[in-house]
Structure formats: C-alpha cells, structure tokens
Computed example of a mutant assay.
Amino acid sequence: MAALQRGARATVAVSPREAEQARAVRDFLGEHQSGPTAITVGVGAQETLAMPRELAELVVKLVDLVGRGCTVTIGSIPAEVTTTVAAGMLDISRPSLMKLVREQLIPSHKVGSHTRLYSKDVLAYRRAQLERQRKAFRELRALEEEWGALD
C-alpha cells in the first residue's frame, strides 16, 4: 500500500493483492455476519483492543469498497456548512438550494445575515432524494415489465 499525503488529505493506492485480500475479508464477513460486526485489533499476543462498533462498521464498509475495486474518499464534514458547500454536497446550484430552503424542504438557520445548514440535514435530504429516485426507478421497471417493454 502506497500513500501520498498532502496536508490533511491522503491518497492511498491499493495493490491487486490488497484488493484480493479485501475481497476475502468481505466474503468472510458476509458469510458470518449475523449482527453488528465486532473487530479486535492487537499488538503482539497480549495487547488487544475491541474497536468501537461505529468504527468497525466503517472498516467493514471500506473493506467492501476496496474489494469491489471502488475509489474511496474519506474526509470529515463540519457540523454546520455554508449554502455554497451544501449546494456542492447535493450537486445542485446555490439558487436551487436556496429554493429548497425557502420551501422549507431543508432546515436552515441564520448566523447574522448568512444562511447556514447542518450537515446532518443536508445528508438526510440527499438520502431521501436518492431513495425517491430508487423508488421511481423501481416503479418504472415494474411498468416496463407489465407492458412488456423489456423485450
């Protein structure tokens, strides 16, 4: 594994062997997962630490993505964001975001004269939007099957 770090950002290149190892771990976890994943890390034979559940779930997601050959970007998101950052998170224009704010589809608050949004609200809107898109796609597929348009 090769890493290139510039300030707070790091890029890690995964070798084909490491990707194969990630697939093996992913498959193992998939076969044995009946509840929350528990991961224990150790240094030597005596010193071990049980990873917190949230971090263990993050590691499992990373292993899955690496095993599938995906590019993974990890970063922290501030609790509160500007409208420009929120629009970028949703991949929409700032005027479109402000329309959503005016229509109260995304909660916002004022800091002085500036509109701010909580990241958790922006991400919740994005998740809901993706779910609406998935539902619409499933409905479209059902109609295609019903009408025989998949021939």
Rank of each mutant, 00 (worst) to 15 (best):
I74Q: 08
D121R: 06
G112A: 08
E54W: 09
R9C: 09
V12T: 10
S96V: 03
P107G: 03
A8E: 06
S93M: 05
C70Q: 14
A8S: 11
A10Y: 04
A136Y: 04
I77E: 14
L140D: 14
L29G: 00
A149V: 07
D151Y: 11
A3E: 15
A128S: 14
V63W: 00
E31G: 10
R68C: 11
S108K: 05
G88P: 01
Y125M: 04
A87C: 06
A128C: 02
M98A: 01
L29Y: 03
G67E: 07
C70Y: 14
M89L: 15
D27L: 10
Y125H: 10
A3F: 02
W147Y: 11
Q21T: 12
E54H: 11
R134H: 09
E145A: 12
Q21C: 04
D91E: 15
G7F: 06
A22G: 08
T73M: 07
C70A: 15
E103M: 12
F137E: 12
Q129K: 12
P107R: 01
T40G: 01
H109R: 11
A38H: 14
G112C: 09
L105F: 05
M51L: 15
E20P: 01
L117I: 05
R68Y: 07
R141A: 13
L117P: 03
I92C: 08
S96D: 15
E146F: 06
K135V: 06
W147M: 09
K61L: 15
M1D: 06
L100P: 03
R68T: 09
D64N: 11
H32Y: 12
V60Y: 02
V25W: 13
G112F: 09
E20D: 15
G69Y: 09
V111Q: 14
V72D: 15
L4D: 08
P36R: 09
T48K: 08
A10W: 02
R6M: 07
Q129S: 14
V81D: 03
T11N: 06
E20V: 01
K110N: 08
E57T: 07
I106N: 01
L58M: 14
K110L: 11
G69R: 04
A22K: 04
A142L: 06
I39N: 03
E146R: 15
A149S: 10
Q104H: 12
T73G: 05
R94Q: 14
G7H: 05
T84C: 02
L97K: 02
L140W: 11
L62S: 02
S76E: 10
Q33K: 10
E103R: 11
R127T: 13
Q5S: 12
E131A: 13
Q46T: 01
T11C: 10
R138E: 15
A3L: 11
G67Y: 05
A86W: 02
V81S: 01
G35H: 08
R116M: 14
F137C: 04
L140P: 00
R134F: 00
V66G: 02
L55R: 12
R134N: 03
I39Y: 03
D64A: 14
H32N: 14
V25T: 09
E47H: 02
T84Y: 02
A22H: 06
L117C: 02
R26Q: 05
T84D: 13
P36N: 13
L58P: 00
V72W: 10
L117E: 01
D121S: 07
E47G: 00
R9N: 11
